[in-house]
């Protein structure tokens, strides 16, 4: 028996919007720790890892570990039927092939349930090693989204370089080149507007902008984004989900031939 009640139902809608461009089908894993997912895109270039901790739910019952295969577009179709202020409850019985999403309006005058068929999904679960990153950049998520969008109109790839001067995003395409440098800036009115660069040593890596743009679909989940870089490792782009957990994207770099 599984029953997860999330008062801030709109959060689940945002989580789906943040993943469905990248991943079609995925297994949602439910355990005492929380509601989680790990999935790669079809070309195995990017990986998304989601964790919504059990403490973040108003009610969390998960009698035994359960893995539920869902098509994210179908799940999104169902969640779109929930009002933005609705409370969403996810329910499933052991051994059944469906999941139920229950939507309650804030004043309890409308209750809907949508039952969705589950799928069998063969997915590889990867072990993500703990790593020391050479550079960690924290910046406003909207700023990062703007940079990725702007640069993708010029080129297909971005070189992200961190030096003590700041973080530089560079691209080149048929029409020309572009460089955007963000310097560390802690002297802002609000902490979420700061750009903070923790650098152990300079690092420079190349990534496909198409994937980074997909990651920025998570912008509504968090005011800030953390970008962790090390040479010879996938970049980690993390959006913290307040009081609940995170959505992390890993993107394999482009390597000189």
């Amino acid at each position: 028996m599984l029953e997860l009640r999330l008062v801030q139902g709109s959060l689940l809608k945002k989580v789906l919007d943040a993943m469905r461009e990248l991943v079609n089908d995925a297994n949602f894993d439910c355990s005492a720790t929380g509601f989680s997912l790990q999935a790669m895109d079809s070309s195995h270039v990017a990986l998304v890892a989601l964790l919504l901790r059990s403490e973040g739910f108003e009610h969390y019952r998960c009698d035994r570990n359960l893995s539920m295969g869902m098509n994210l577009n179908n799940m999104s179709k169902m969640l779109r039927c929930a009002g933005n202020d609705d409370i969403i409850t996810i329910k499933a019985d052991d051994g059944t092939d469906s999941v139920t999403f229950m939507f309650e309006s804030p004043n309890q005058d409308k209750i809907a349930d949508f039952e969705m068929k589950l799928m069998d999904i063969d997915s590889e679960h990867l072990g993500i090693p703990d790593a020391e990153y050479q550079a960690i950049v924290r910046m406003p998520s909207s700023e990062f989204a703007r940079i990725c969008k702007d640069l993708s109109s010029i080129g297909d790839t971005v070189v992200i370089s961190v030096t003590k001067e700041g973080v530089k995003f560079s691209t080149a395409g048929d029409i020309g080149t572009a460089n955007i440098v963000c310097r560390q800036n802690k002297t802002v009115d609000k902490p979420e507007e700061a750009t903070i660069i923790e650098m152990q040593e300079p690092v420079s890596l190349t990534f496909a902008l198409r994937y980074l743009n997909s990651f920025t679909k998570a912008t509504p989940l968090s005011d800030t984004v953390t970008i962790s870089l090390s040479s010879e490792l996938p970049v980690v782009v993390e959006y913290k989900i307040a009081e609940m957990g995170y959505i992390r994207y890993y993107l394999a770099p482009k390597i000189e031939e």
Partner: peptide
């Protein structure tokens, strides 16, 4: 822009 690597080249299967 170089050759695109894959996630599975970095992270081992569980």
């Amino acid at each position: 822009g170089g050759k695109q690597s894959t996630i599975t080249a970095f992270f081992g299967q569980f």
